[in-house]
């Protein structure tokens, strides 16, 4: 088993050995997971969101559990792009697995500076987290308005030669419209979905469970929404789609692939089992063996609708 199937995929000029990646913000800078799994087994490693300057993140409490999900408001705590390139990237690159840098800024210029800084650093691609408030434009998220997302991607496209993956927010009127806007602006791929805005209340104390009141929902609770959005985006665009949201096992990952994703990212499940990516990969291989499918790419978008 294993050697008999071809799991490789191409994403925006990147060749991945297999379609299973970590999701940003759930594997730290990679090193935290090293004691639990062989990181070289991953298709790619997507690191915690990076900003120009280090950010302390939100005050606690930052996380709360809800049925089949988790609401977080970490506040994008990170060490900043310089420290990442200097202290974390070299050992990550030694693994021989493509490293994808997830980035976010408060305005278009910050995104461009980040992209330029990472060009030539050794990362294989950048993933744009556009679910961030555009401070210059009154705090509305880039990810909510197709025109803003379009302009952002177009500028980042000019700033870097690296493959660009644009990570879409589910918090939009129409995901197809968003996907088409960023495709037209020149993104090489899209990933979806980021977390869904959510809230939980401690009724005894009549207080919000999170210091920031509202946070982002992840985990199995959001999977059907994410699968639907991948399916819709797949109808609308030609660029490769990376499916994210509530994947706990191989059959969940396969749902995304059959709906049209050419790769998957695994987030919250890593908290429960830090070796889950290996399990998902093994499960996909077993599925392919069982169904006599030799090439993983043949599964992409293979949904039968009669």
């Amino acid at each position: 088993m294993g050697g008999t199937v071809d799991l490789s995929v191409d994403i925006g000029g990147m060749r991945l050995r297999n379609p299973v990646m970590t999701a940003s913000g759930t594997c730290g800078y990679g090193e935290e997971l090293a004691p639990y799994m062989d990181l070289r087994r991953l298709g790619a490693i997507v690191v915690k969101g990076l900003s120009l300057k280090p950010r302390p993140g939100n005050p606690p409490p930052r996380m709360t559990e809800v049925p089949s999900g988790l609401i977080n408001s970490i506040g994008l705590q990170n060490i900043g792009v310089e420290a990442f390139v200097r202290d974390k990237l070299p050992s990550l690159m030694d693994l021989g697995v493509p490293v994808i840098a997830n980035i976010f800024g408060e305005d278009v210029e910050e995104y461009c500076l980040l992209a330029r800084r990472l060009d030539g650093s050794g990362v294989a691609a950048i993933e744009l987290n556009i679910s961030c408030p555009n401070v210059k434009k009154g705090g509305m998220e880039f990810g909510r308005i197709p025109e803003e997302a379009h302009d952002l991607v177009r500028e980042v496209r000019r700033a870097t030669g690296l493959p660009i993956i644009t990570k879409l927010s589910p918090n939009v009127r129409d995901i197809k419209e968003m996907a088409m806007a960023v495709e037209e602006a020149g993104t090489d791929a899209i990933s979806l979905i980021n977390t869904i805005p959510a809230m939980a209340i401690d009724v005894e104390r009549r207080r919000p469970r999170l210091s920031s009141i509202i946070g982002g929902l992840s985990g199995p609770a959001i999977r059907p929404i994410a699968v639907r959005m991948v399916w819709e985006a797949y109808q609308a665009v030609k660029v490769p789609i990376i499916g994210v949201g509530g994947i706990m096992g191989a059959s969940d990952a396969l749902e995304f692939v059959i709906a049209g994703a050419c790769a998957v990212q695994i987030g919250t499940a890593t908290f429960i089992d830090p070796a889950v990516c290996e399990k998902v990969l093994k499960g996909i291989e077993e599925y392919m063996d069982r169904h006599g499918i030799r090439r993983f790419v043949d599964l992409i978008g293979s949904l039968e609708v009669s």
Partner: peptide
């Protein structure tokens, strides 16, 4: 004692000042 997401340092959910 803090509520923990992962326990292994990845989620940054259990921080204290």
């Amino acid at each position: 004692d803090r509520m923990m997401g992962c326990g292994i340092g990845t989620c940054l959910g259990c921080v204290v000042r």
